[in-house]
Simulated scan of single mutants.
Amino acid sequence: MTLPATKPSKRKIQTKAERRAETTEQILDAAEFLFSRHGFYGVTLKDVAKKVGVHHTLLNYYFADKQSLFDEVFARRAKVANKVRMEALDAYEATLDGPPTVEGALHAFLDTNLDLYDQGDQGWHYAGTLAAAVSNTPEWGAELFDEWFDPIVLRLIDLLKRAMPECPEEDVFWGYHFVSGSLMLTLARTGRIDKLSNGLCKADDFDAIKARMVDFMAAGFRAACRDKSARST
């Protein structure tokens, strides 16, 4: 029996806008990887073009210069990270039947962020390393973090103030400072703890980190916020 001839499948023809969007994502992915490994000053547009497999002049069609490319690389992940953390904080606050707790606020702020950078695609791993590097760049890192993350951080601090109304405001801010440092070191995945512990602890074991970080930080907040006179006796 002769089978009826099948019609060749038609490949969808991309529009100009779709091609541009796809190429933009390829450029951002390549730049994200390179910036995460070599920093802003260690990467050129030619390096990015080579990684993508295109002529470097094409990048000028998509991005005015390296700074605009870097800004878009950072913004792409920051938008998503802010959205999921704000949603988590909203969801936590909606469950409250009384004041928030230190642990509850920190879990909402930290766990969702750790899940995103751990369970997302490989690009999120590079983005975490890049964020950690930017946070430790004195020249302009703070300005970039101010621009993107101040609203979400201040939302967390508001919850912590309500959880510890007796705590001096300065100690709440210092507490966040220490939380931020721990989070950035975690996202950097340097592997230092692997070597120090002879493999007992692993920098990319985010489940182990989640199981410990909030308890550690909450205890630190409470210790720092005890009455000053009580601590001095």
Rank of each mutant, 00 (worst) to 15 (best):
P151E: 07
D97R: 10
G123R: 14
F173C: 05
L89Y: 05
T112M: 11
L187D: 02
Y117K: 08
L160S: 00
E139K: 04
H125T: 14
R162N: 02
H107D: 09
Q122V: 15
A132L: 00
A105I: 01
D111W: 12
T95C: 00
W174T: 04
R162Y: 02
A81R: 07
N136L: 05
V179C: 04
A127D: 04
T137D: 02
I157H: 00
G123E: 14
A91F: 01
E147I: 04
D90C: 01
K161G: 07
A78N: 11
M164L: 15
E87Y: 04
T186M: 10
Y176W: 11
V102M: 03
A163L: 05
R162A: 08
P168L: 11
K83A: 14
E170I: 14
D115L: 09
K83F: 05
E147R: 14
M86D: 05
A78M: 12
D115M: 11
T186S: 12
K161I: 11
H107P: 00
D111F: 15
L156A: 03
T137A: 03
L154D: 15
N82D: 14
D97P: 00
D90L: 01
E169K: 11
L96S: 05
C167S: 07
N82E: 13
A78K: 00
F178I: 09
N113K: 06
E87T: 14
A142E: 12
E93F: 00
A131E: 03
F145T: 09
W140R: 07
V172I: 15
S180G: 13
L96P: 04
L183D: 05
L96E: 10
A131P: 00
L116W: 09
S182C: 08
T95R: 08
V134M: 06
Q119A: 15
L96N: 06
S135W: 02
D121P: 15
D146C: 04
A78T: 08
I157V: 14
F145P: 00
H107G: 02
N82P: 01
E103Y: 00
I152R: 10
L159R: 05
S135E: 06
A81E: 09
Y176S: 06
P151F: 09
L116K: 09
C167R: 01
G128C: 05
R85Y: 03
L185R: 05
L185S: 08
V102L: 13
L110M: 13
S135F: 09
D111L: 09
I157A: 02
W124K: 03
V84Q: 07
T186Y: 04
I152K: 08
V134H: 05
A105F: 00
L106C: 07
S135D: 08
N113C: 13
W140V: 06
V80M: 07
E103I: 02
V153G: 03
H107Y: 06
D150K: 10
H177Y: 09
E170T: 14
Y176K: 05
I157K: 08
P168C: 11
A132V: 02
A127E: 03
G181Q: 04
